[in-house]
Simulated assay, not measured.
Amino acid sequence: MRWRRCGEHGALLECESLEQAMAARAAVEAARPSDVVELVPGARTLLVEARPGSRALDEVRALVEDLTRPPATEIREITIEVVYDGEDLELVARDAGISTQEVVELHTGAEYTVAFTGFAPGFGYLTGLPEPLQQSRLDTSRTRVPAGSVGVAGEFTGIYPRESPGGWRLIGRSDTVLFDQHAERPSLLAPGDRVRFRSVR
């Protein structure tokens, strides 16, 4: 792991892997240092912003440097219903060398963890995607991906919370509301949450 100063009151932890970054975030959230203002997890980074004049960055550094395994924390489990009729379902099946039904079975049979959020409010990057479904993004991104579209790209799967451009391979769609700015908890998904998908017609 490598630390870099980021502004006057922040630091960026650069990790060797997604798993290490997730473990670091979990450790800091479990310890809840009072002077940590914000945590922003990424695929292989963790940005920490501290209260001015505090020693929170030193506390966080000590936490993650002593980290041997992620702390035990209470985990939320979320099930999301999906209609598997995406534009790229046959493409994903063909590149994986399996049937479209097997794509659905693989996608619904796995348990996923929200590694981090970003791209758009409510968009969670979910790890745990079975290896045959770990495929590259489209060569050319779409200018319009409908809200609720379920896609795969690289090691991640995710759901577009609103209409936007995007280059992920689309395998289905969901009516689940992922972001509601008026809700007490605006984003349905948060880092560390466990997610399963259920096929519906």
Score class of each variant (00 low, 15 high):
residue 38 E to T: 11
residue 39 L to N: 08
residue 120 A to K: 02
residue 19 E to Q: 14
residue 97 G to T: 09
residue 140 T to L: 09
residue 40 V to D: 06
residue 40 V to K: 03
residue 11 A to S: 13
residue 97 G to V: 05
residue 194 R to V: 03
residue 107 H to S: 04
residue 103 V to K: 03
residue 178 L to G: 04
residue 41 P to Y: 12
residue 80 I to Q: 06
residue 158 G to L: 06
residue 54 S to T: 10
residue 55 R to K: 12
residue 189 L to W: 05
residue 118 G to A: 09
residue 170 L to A: 03
residue 168 W to I: 04
residue 200 V to S: 04
residue 122 G to W: 03
residue 19 E to A: 15
residue 33 P to E: 12
residue 24 A to M: 07
residue 138 L to M: 13
residue 137 R to S: 09
residue 67 L to Y: 06
residue 165 P to V: 06
residue 89 L to I: 15
residue 1 M to K: 03
residue 187 S to N: 02
residue 163 E to Y: 02
residue 122 G to P: 01
residue 42 G to Q: 10
residue 144 R to T: 13
residue 132 P to E: 12
residue 115 A to W: 02
residue 145 V to R: 04
residue 150 V to L: 15
residue 109 G to L: 04
residue 43 A to P: 01
residue 43 A to F: 12
residue 162 R to S: 15
residue 9 H to T: 13
residue 103 V to T: 08
residue 41 P to F: 12
residue 65 E to K: 09
residue 16 E to F: 00
residue 187 S to Q: 11
residue 69 R to H: 13
residue 34 S to N: 06
residue 184 E to G: 10
residue 70 P to D: 11
residue 112 Y to C: 05
residue 26 A to P: 00
residue 134 Q to P: 00
residue 145 V to F: 06
residue 187 S to K: 00
residue 97 G to N: 08
residue 116 F to H: 05
residue 118 G to C: 10
residue 137 R to Q: 10
residue 137 R to L: 04
residue 164 S to Y: 09
residue 72 A to M: 06
residue 177 V to I: 15
residue 129 L to F: 11
residue 73 T to N: 00
residue 5 R to L: 12
residue 190 A to F: 02
residue 156 F to R: 03
residue 109 G to Q: 06
residue 32 R to T: 13
residue 147 A to S: 15
residue 16 E to I: 00
residue 23 A to Y: 08
residue 41 P to N: 13
residue 81 E to C: 05
residue 86 G to E: 07
residue 116 F to R: 02
residue 115 A to Y: 02
residue 32 R to N: 14
residue 170 L to S: 04
residue 170 L to D: 04
residue 36 V to M: 08
residue 103 V to Q: 07
residue 110 A to I: 01
residue 186 P to C: 09
residue 12 L to H: 03
residue 71 P to Y: 12
residue 97 G to R: 05
residue 84 Y to N: 08
residue 171 I to M: 09
residue 124 G to T: 03
residue 1 M to A: 15
residue 120 A to M: 15
residue 74 E to L: 12
residue 168 W to Y: 10
residue 194 R to I: 03
residue 110 A to R: 00
residue 27 A to G: 08
residue 148 G to T: 09
residue 153 A to S: 13
residue 50 A to E: 07
residue 37 V to M: 14
